[in-house]
Nucleic acid binder design. Structure first.
Lengths: 215, 215
DNA sequence: GTTAAATTAAAACAGTTGTTTTAGAAAAGT
DNA sequence: ACTTTTCTAAAACAACTGTTTTAATTTAAC
């Protein structure tokens, strides 16, 4: 049949263009022309441009969030079983690793991750509102796990440190594939995902674990 | 005279709206109506919407960058005078502190800082290209200073750690004033700028100073 | 093969976009 | 007072926006 083909092609094209040009700067005509389908197909299949954005998010965010949630729950479970607190590093890794590794899961996944990076730092946009709705419960679980991992750090500080970590992650994600940033001499453009993930995890878990009170 | 009044009013309105709605989602009519001036005034005074964006950036970025540059140079100078390497923490503080503190410098400054936060994380937008042009030399100075401060860490790692730090900063900046984020129980919405800056500096300098090689 | 539903194609819709034009008012120079 | 420049006001411009409509075509059911 031709239904899923058309819908998928629209989703792929929208994902690609939203990630690169942003939501408001991408027209339905650009999407349909890239997808090779008729203009009316978007409104027919999805209802509106906004609903299309929602669909773009849902298609990948649901399995990705399940993966991240399972990871975190596994960390909590292991800690509970061994009668200890969850570790900061393993908790952050449980959340961050699937996010960065997700890029390798398929052709359009890379576009999607860039889109997520944009959405996280898009302070008031339509994009962000949609994103927040999908990520809020997972964020809550992540925050609570880190609170357990850091009993001596006040919740406010844990919250902000987590925001810093997410900011760092979203920034490096949204940099992915962009070449217009001014690279200093002697710096190679980008490593493989694994080593970049390792660098990021080292950075954020070190900052997160800083003893409290800060002297 | 009425020229500077009109131009300033346009700049203020554009700054306000660009920060909240983004560049593409802000119309010239919204700007001029907020500024209380005629629609044609933008094209008369600035030439185009794009040139207006550039002017919005320049108005505050030039003095802000001078402040940050002077701060970093002062750190380098003190280190040279005392025959030691520049410190990681003081270097990051020299860059970050003016950025966050700038919000208190005037009425529209808060809008501007949010706009900067957006621009930094706007991966391919017009906004980002304009911003990169203005910030590139300063970024280079910051990077080189950190390289001197961390001789045992390879330049690639210093580069990425700096990106993480900037991502954390830009994220917390673009969160400023936003209330739609889901705050967990027991977390107060936002502290004053000073304590938030302290938290951020603690976080990023800890991650930046992590010994190399990472065990 | 006929009928009914699903899907596409193409055109048209009303509204908004950035920009320009035209005319007139205000300010400055002489 | 007069001229010239500077700026504003209002309307108009063509291009583009998301969405809807109308008709044609494909797909499925019986």
């Amino acid at each position: 049949m031709s239904i899923p083909d058309t819908k998928e092609r629209i989703l792929d094209a929208a994902e690609y263009l939203f990630a690169r040009r942003g939501f408001h700067n991408t027209s339905l005509r650009a999407i349909t022309s890239r997808a090779g389908v008729n203009l009316a197909a978007v409104n027919y299949h999805f209802g509106s441009k906004y609903a299309l954005l929602e669909a773009v998010f849902q298609r990948r965010l649901i399995p990705l969030n399940r993966l991240r949630r399972d990871n975190i729950e596994r960390v909590r479970e292991a800690a509970r079983r061994e009668g200890r607190r969850p570790g900061v590093r393993e908790t952050l890794l449980a959340f961050i690793e699937p996010t960065l590794a997700f890029r390798k899961s398929g052709s359009g996944a890379e576009d999607y991750i860039v889109l997520v990076g944009r959405a996280m730092s898009d302070p008031e946009d339509t994009v962000r509102d949609v994103f927040i709705r999908h990520i809020a419960p997972l964020f809550h679980l992540l925050f609570e796990t880190l609170r357990e991992a850091l009993p001596e750090v006040p919740p406010d500080a844990v919250f902000w440190r987590l925001q810093f970590a997410l900011g760092a992650m979203s920034h490096v994600i949204s940099m992915a594939g962009k070449t217009n940033l001014p690279l200093p001499d002697g710096v190679t453009p980008v490593g493989d995902v694994e080593s970049l993930t390792a660098l990021l995890i080292d950075f954020v878990s070190t900052g997160m674990e800083r003893p409290w009170p800060v002297q």
